[in-house]
Simulated scan of single mutants.
Amino acid sequence: MAYRNGNYAAFYVSEPFNESNLGASATKDFVSYNLLKAWKSNDSTFPFIDSHNKNYNVRDGSDWEKTLKPRLHDRLNNSKNIILFLSSITKNSKALREEINYGIGTLGLPVIVVYPEYSDKSDIINCSSKTFKQQIKNLWDKLPAFRDSMNSVPTLHIPNKKELIRKALNNKDFMINSKCTADQYFYSC
Rank of each mutant, 00 (worst) to 15 (best):
G6I: 03
G6N: 03
N7H: 07
A9D: 05
A9I: 06
Y12S: 01
P16A: 14
N21H: 00
L22A: 12
L22C: 05
A24W: 01
T27P: 04
K28D: 14
K28Q: 13
D29W: 05
D29I: 09
F30G: 04
V31C: 09
N34H: 08
L35V: 12
L35N: 10
L36M: 15
A38G: 11
W39K: 09
W39Q: 12
K40N: 03
N42L: 10
N42F: 14
P47T: 07
I49H: 12
S51F: 03
K54T: 01
N55G: 01
Y56C: 04
R59F: 09
D60S: 09
G61A: 03
S62E: 04
W64Q: 05
T67Y: 01
L68Q: 00
L68K: 02
R71C: 08
D74R: 15
R75G: 04
R75Q: 03
R75N: 04
L76Y: 07
N77D: 07
N77R: 12
I82R: 07
I82V: 03
F85D: 15
S87I: 06
E98L: 13
N101W: 05
G103T: 06
I104G: 11
G105P: 10
T106S: 10
L107M: 08
V114F: 11
V114Y: 10
P116S: 13
P116R: 03
P116Q: 14
E117G: 05
Y118S: 10
S119K: 02
S119L: 15
K121D: 15
S122N: 07
I124A: 14
I124K: 08
N126V: 11
C127Y: 15
C127N: 06
S128Q: 12
S129Q: 08
T131I: 11
K133D: 08
K133M: 15
Q135E: 10
L139W: 14
D141G: 14
A145L: 01
A145F: 04
F146C: 13
N151M: 06
N151H: 10
N151P: 06
V153K: 15
V153D: 12
V153G: 08
